[in-house]
Nucleic acid binder design. Structure first.
Length: 867
DNA sequence: CTGTTCACG
DNA sequence: ACGTACGTGAACAGA
């Protein structure tokens, strides 16, 4: 059966006004009545779920009761100023709820309610009347109930016939007689003097009605008899005044009062103006909204505000164009909508620690809004990273590819919508329909994608890696990017000048030697000069001609002095173009450069750094190393502190292989290359020469890279036979390593993948190739990936912990860079000692291996000095 | 847009 | 007989 909810607007408005403290918004407007009324309305809609609803209001003109009795409601004070100013807004709110109000000239809300409830109940509906006034109890019948506010605004008593009788020992209709006898102070209904509730109930119970009482006054005694007899007319008038009119002449179509969706935009806007933030978040869990989303997916932020509070998991897909977030699509499950972004502050709506945001490459978005000062505290999940963990060798993790692969969803390519290169469209020229469709499809699939990926991740036992390392790392990398690394422009300029002077002279020398000018940077023109003009021996060929790389040039040095100058020119040009000319234009107003760290690029699990790449700043050659003098702290008198893992890859190898000798070396904190030299060359440690140590070091590198005699021979410029001897000797002495390498290759051949300490996985399809090169490549990957990847796991764990520790302790120092085995902290001068202790204790104890992890710390006013 | 070279771990 | 050491990114040249 349908349910008609009818509300006494005036009564509830007064009720809210008096029950609540004097609330005001920042404009000084009183809001308590609107607030209380809205709260009651929301609660009623949610609890009662009516099919029809109406709110009745008094009409200001005098009512028929005043005509009969001029003193009617005479004691009532006029409406307070603070309530009057709320009435119109309250009606706007009701309007935004899409609820119709009823007001009729000359009648009170009570009478409208009486009439409408009669019509509704006669047409077979259940009626629920909500009011603060007990008078309404007279309207109760078999299918009409009344709810009356008890205390405050949220507590209500519901009355049906039985409840009325239990409470007042009379029927609903006799309630009128009761009131006629008792009178009503608030309505200024006189009643019979000296008859209160007790006597009135007794009389109504005995006589049934006022009329019957007046006919039988002889049965009364004493003072009561006297009062009733002397006030018979008053009693009749009081009864008439107390009787709610149920036949107000109105033409009403009940269907007009069917419950509609409220106008979320308007309502949110009003609540925002009134500053009812808690109510905005109460506009929630309304399935009607999801329906709206599907019907019309373009929204504005007012709408978003309402919707976002409702969900504890939301998918988000941003459209970042020219470095700005132009639009975002939100989804809950597969319901989604699109919003254009005019004000980044709107993203603060996502600041909710109960919310989980699902995104694909969320860091891009988080970094972007962070540059505008917006930091979110919601939980995050990233489907791009999840996809990367499932297979870190993919060339890219574009959403369209991923959806195609895991959900068989076809998404139009974003490049087809936006255009590429010189065909890139201006934002306004983009086909909005296509963009909205693309973004909503992306967002609405993320949740399903997440579920699918998560089931695979659990299957592969990578949930810990995802949740404890990769996901927390997003915020760490974000912070590193946004904070940036401060550069000293003067240092760069002075090195630049030095390079210019040197190269000017070198270029002249080379042109003199050639007898003509050419582009020394061109491999082709340089090889013409070297191999045609100078007739030097061409040692190596490339696909396109003769090679002129470092290895070749080094061999040509003895033939002609100019070769040395070419080498120097190359080095200097590299430094200038990449690290000086490349850096100066990307420094911001605080002299900082902001790299982008890529979490889904390196197949081994490492992170990579781009634009600029801060992970390949020169260090090996002294001249290039001076570039590091330009990398300084952002703090006045601050320090750059560098903490690097000593021999982390060989330690990981010792752990994984459980090789006794290797473990022993690390337990005894030996010089690892010296020890290897003594083993490989079968001499005592005292007899190891520096050349032997150098070669042993190369052997160790070779082991880590997946050794081959050819590679080693080339690196050490020795014969393959000799290289093979080194390797054989090594494996003879380090049997555990040999066993490990054999078993990991075997594992890879059988399973098609290898794993790291944290169960990170890399597939190696090449390992079973019939092509020798491919297969060998696969074998080397099988050997190298668990080592390089486990080292990556370890430093990633350290990054998360170092970042969190600095944050929790409220330190000003910041983790600003990771270079695979090294963390760089921009350190506040007051925090040097604590940062050093913190780094060492966290990094060395982040995981317990079969060998200790050792961290070396360096400090200085710049990165150069921190080594 | 690919190839070469070279910067780092 | 095979002919690469593992993992990255940027600048430049020359189609």
């Amino acid at each position: 059966m349908s349910k008609f909810l009818i509300i006494d607007g005036n009564s509830l408005m007064y009720r809210a006004y008096f029950a609540l403290p004097d609330l005001m918004n920042s404009e000084g407007m009183h809001t308590n009545a609107i607030y209380g009324f809205s709260m009651m309305l929301l609660k009623l809609l949610e609890e009662e779920k009516p099919d029809y609803i109406a709110i009745a209001f008094d009409k200001k003109a005098s009512t028929f009761r005043h005509k009969e009795y001029s003193a009617y409601k005479g004691t009532r004070q006029s409406m307070p100023e603070e309530l009057i100013e709320q009435v119109d807004i309250l009606k706007d709110v009701i309007n935004a709820f899409n609820i119709k109000t009823i007001e009729i000239e000359g009648f009170e809300a009570d009478d409208i309610i009486g009439t409408v409830s009669k019509i509704a109940s006669e047409s077979g509906m259940d009626v629920l009347i909500v009011t603060g006034d007990r008078d309404a109890l007279q309207l109760v019948s078999a299918n009409v109930k009344v709810k009356i506010c008890k205390k405050g605004i949220t507590q209500m008593d519901e009355y049906d016939e039985k409840a009325v009788f239990e409470k007042y020992e009379v029927t609903p209709l006799q309630f009128i007689d009761l009131k006629g006898l008792m009178g009503d102070k608030s309505d200024n209904i006189p009643g019979v003097p000296n008859i209160g509730e007790k006597t009135a109930i007794k009389l109504v119970k005995e006589f049934g009605s006022i009329e019957n009482l007046l006919m039988n006054t002889d049965k009364l005694k004493g003072k009561i008899k006297e009062n009733v007899e002397n006030n018979a007319e008053l009693a009749v008038l009081s009864k008439r005044l107390a009787t709610i009119e149920r036949n107000v002449p109105i033409d009403i179509d009940l269907n007009e009062y069917a419950v509609k969706n409220y106008d979320v935009n308007k309502l949110t806007e009003l609540f925002e103006k009134l500053e009812f933030s808690s109510l905005i978040s109460d506009l929630k869990d309304d399935s009607r909204d999801t329906k709206d989303i599907k019907e019309w997916p373009v929204r504005d932020f007012t709408y978003v505000k309402n919707v976002l509070g409702k969900f504890d998991v939301l998918s988000l897909y941003p459209f970042i164009y020219d470095g700005k977030i132009k639009a975002v699509s939100f989804a809950c499950g597969d319901g989604s909508f699109f919003v254009e972004i005019d004000d980044y502050d709107n993203f603060k709506l996502l600041n909710n620690d109960k919310l989980t945001l699902i995104g694909h490459d969320l860091k891009d978005f988080l970094v972007n809004i962070s540059y505008c000062g917006i930091e979110l505290n919601c939980k995050i999940l990233d489907t791009a990273i999840m996809t990367y963990l499932l297979n870190p060798s993919e060339s890219n993790y574009d959403i369209s590819r991923v959806l195609k692969k895991y959900l068989k969803e076809d998404l139009q390519n974003i490049d087809d919508i936006v255009g590429k290169g010189r065909n890139k469209k201006s934002y306004d020229d983009i086909d909005k329909k296509l963009l909205v469709d693309y973004m909503c499809s992306a967002a609405s699939n993320l949740s399903k994608l997440k579920d699918k990926l998560m089931s695979f991740i659990k299957e592969m036992e990578m949930e810990d890696l995802l949740k404890n390392v990769e996901i927390p790392l997003i915020e760490v990398l974000k912070s590193m990017e946004v904070y940036g690394f401060t550069l000293d422009k003067d240092v760069l300029r002075s090195i630049s000048k030095e390079i210019d002077e040197k190269t000017d002279k070198i270029v002249k020398d080379i042109y003199d030697a050639a007898g003509y000018e050419f582009n020394i940077n061109s491999t082709k023109q340089l090889s013409e000069f070297l191999f045609d003009k100078l007739n030097l021996p061409a040692i190596k060929k490339t696909k396109t001609g003769y090679s002129t790389d470092m290895e070749v040039l080094a061999e040509l040095i003895p033939y002609n002095d100019i070769v040395g100058e070419i080498i120097e020119y190359r080095q200097l040009m590299k430094l200038k173009s990449t690290y000086i000319d490349g850096f100066i234009p990307i420094m911001d107003e605080n002299n900082r450069v902001h790299s982008t760290f890529k979490q889904t690029v390196a197949a081994t699990g490492r992170i990579s750094s781009t634009e600029p790449n801060l992970q390949n700043i020169p260090v090996r050659e002294e001249f290039g190393r001076r570039i590091r003098k330009a990398f300084v702290s952002s703090y006045e008198d601050g320090l750059i502190i560098s903490a690097d893992y000593s021999q982390i890859e060989l330690r990981v190898l010792a752990h994984l292989s459980e090789d006794e000798k290797l473990i022993e070396s690390f337990l005894n904190n030996e010089d690892i290359h010296l020890r290897t030299a003594s083993e490989v060359f079968k001499v005592s440690k005292e007899e190891v020469t520096s050349e032997m140590r150098r070669r042993a070091k190369a052997v160790n590198f070779g082991i880590v890279y997946g050794i081959s005699d050819y590679g080693l021979s080339k690196d050490l410029k020795i014969s393959r036979k000799e290289a093979k001897e080194y390797i054989d000797n090594y494996f003879d002495r380090y049997k555990g390593v040999k066993n490990y390498i054999d078993s990991i290759v075997k594992f890879a051949k059988e399973n098609g993948y290898v794993t790291t300490i944290l169960n990170r996985r890399r597939y190696i399809p090449e390992i079973n190739s019939k092509n020798f090169n491919q297969r060998s490549f696969g074998e080397r990957m099988a050997m190298n990936t668990p080592i390089q990847g486990s080292a990556a796991d370890i430093i990633k764990m350290s990054m998360v912990k170092v970042y969190n520790e600095l944050k929790e302790r409220g330190l000003k120092s910041r983790l600003i860079l990771q270079v695979h085995d090294e963390l760089i902290i921009d350190t506040h001068p007051d925090e040097v000692e604590i940062v050093k202790e913190l780094l060492k204790s966290i990094m060395e104890n982040i995981i317990k291996l079969k060998v200790p992890l050792v961290v070396d710390i360096g400090q200085g006013k710049n990165w150069y000095d921190a080594k």
